[in-house]
Simulated assay, not measured.
Amino acid sequence: MSCVRSEISKKNPYWIPKHRYFELKHFCLQYPDWKNEYAALLGVNSLSSLNFSKSRLKNIADRTSDSAIRRLYFSDRMRMVEQSAIDADPDIFEYLLKGVTAGYSYTYLKTYCDIPCSKDFYYDRYRRFFWLLDKVRE
């Protein structure tokens, strides 16, 4: 898990309140669940072997619209996290995404993923990511 301090100086340009940071961090840790749910919903609309009576068509329409609404819900959240990572730094956004959605520390990213930046640079962008996500989630 990440060892970045939860609270930084209010003088830091990326300062957000400690508990807001925790809220956003836990929001991001749901990302793998959203991806799995979204992928599972892609197969829900298969109509190949259904009998098309009037009542069945209504149930299909309800399921289809429910599925579309849920896919939109998950895709909006995934896009929010992904775009904040890209906006924080387009050169290392893949590493930021791994860090914020899986809780990987800089040490893990350096050791196993060969992140191409220093620890200080990474954590500066990490804080920028949460600051940007805070603005999007307002």
Rank of each mutant, 00 (worst) to 15 (best):
K119S: 09
A88I: 00
R79Q: 09
S67A: 15
R127W: 07
Y112R: 11
W131P: 00
F74R: 03
H19V: 04
T107R: 09
L50H: 11
S46V: 11
S49L: 08
Q30L: 12
I8P: 02
C3A: 07
K25V: 04
F129V: 06
H26N: 14
R63D: 12
Q30V: 02
K11Q: 05
D66V: 07
K25C: 04
F22N: 11
Y14P: 01
L57T: 04
K10Q: 15
L133N: 03
W34E: 04
S49E: 07
P90V: 15
S55E: 14
Y122L: 03
V44A: 13
G103Q: 13
G43L: 09
D124E: 15
D91L: 10
L133T: 04
L97P: 07
R5C: 09
I16K: 00
L42W: 15
L42E: 15
V136L: 07
Y31I: 01
L97Q: 03
I69V: 12
R20H: 06
M80G: 05
K98P: 06
F129L: 07
F74P: 06
S75H: 09
N45W: 05
I60Y: 11
Y38S: 14
G103D: 08
P90T: 15
P13G: 00
N45R: 08
N45L: 09
D33S: 12
W34R: 05
R79V: 11
E7K: 00
S118G: 06
K35W: 11
Y14V: 01
H26S: 10
S118W: 03
I69F: 13
H19E: 13
M80L: 12
C28P: 03
W131R: 02
E7C: 01
A61L: 15
T64M: 08
K98R: 13
D89C: 12
Y38I: 09
L96Q: 03
G99V: 01
T111S: 10
Y123C: 02
E82G: 04
D120K: 10
I8R: 00
W131I: 00
S48V: 15
E82R: 10
K35D: 12
I60N: 09
L24G: 02
K58R: 09
E138V: 02
K135P: 09
